[in-house]
Amino acid sequence: MTGTATGSRTATRLHELRDQGRAALVGYLPLGYPDVAGSVDAARAMVEAGVDVVELGVPYTDPVMDGPTIQRAVEHSLAGGTRVREVFGAVEQIAATGVPVLVMTYWNPVLRYGVEPFARDLAAAGGAGLITPDLIPDEGAQWLAASEEHDLDRVFLVAPSSTPERLALTAAASRGFVYAASTMGVTGARAQVGERAEQLVADTRAAGADLVCVGVGVSTPEQAAEVATFADGVIVGSALVRTLLDAPDPAAGRRELARLAGDLAAGVASARR
């Protein structure tokens, strides 16, 4: 179903970029680091520097798909009192830049808010959809219905361990794109992007997916350029978050973030497809 749905803002943007002969850069930041307003400023700075799609993370107490960098930022966000409902205002402000904004969230905060109300409020805020790291399509009946109702993207993950049957099931259930984890493991910088990433993208396309973006472990412009040769999008998270964590103050953090985002965007743009 990916890309064939006319309503998908993310797929539309990814197709435009594909027509220009390049992949998209998808940048992740968590809501509430260093605080809610600061995370909105950071996301906008990232867009100005060349990020094509924003992935905004809802902070959660038990982020099992995330490595130490994102865990630290999220712990700080929760300690600062960030509330789940603040994500909608943040999405609205970031979406005003014109880029698609996907919300990355573990499933329990959505269940607690209510799947239908969450979809309704996300759509009202101008959000593009959800990336759900601990929700597989098999458990997602409520979300499938709510996302259809509110015209939202459903980005499910595939991994190098996924069987052909599961790749097909996930590709069919996704809307926007399919998120291919480059390597077995949690988020965080790695020296090399897994060799299995290219194969996984090919397998996911063969299983019926139109658009496939690659994340987990991509941190440098060189890696981004490499991934951009075979994927429709390059997802970078921990490396961007690290620029904020390591900065002496938020303004310096935004400068470093924009510098890295710009380098990553240049890397993606340099890739021949």
Binding site: V64, M65, P133, D134, I136, P160, S161, S162, R166, A181
Partner: peptide, 14 residues
């Protein structure tokens, strides 16, 4: 019950 885990684990659970 159910299986609310990353897709990466589904093959091992099966």
């Amino acid at each position: 019950g159910g299986r609310f885990v990353p897709e990466a684990l589904i093959a091992a659970l099966d």
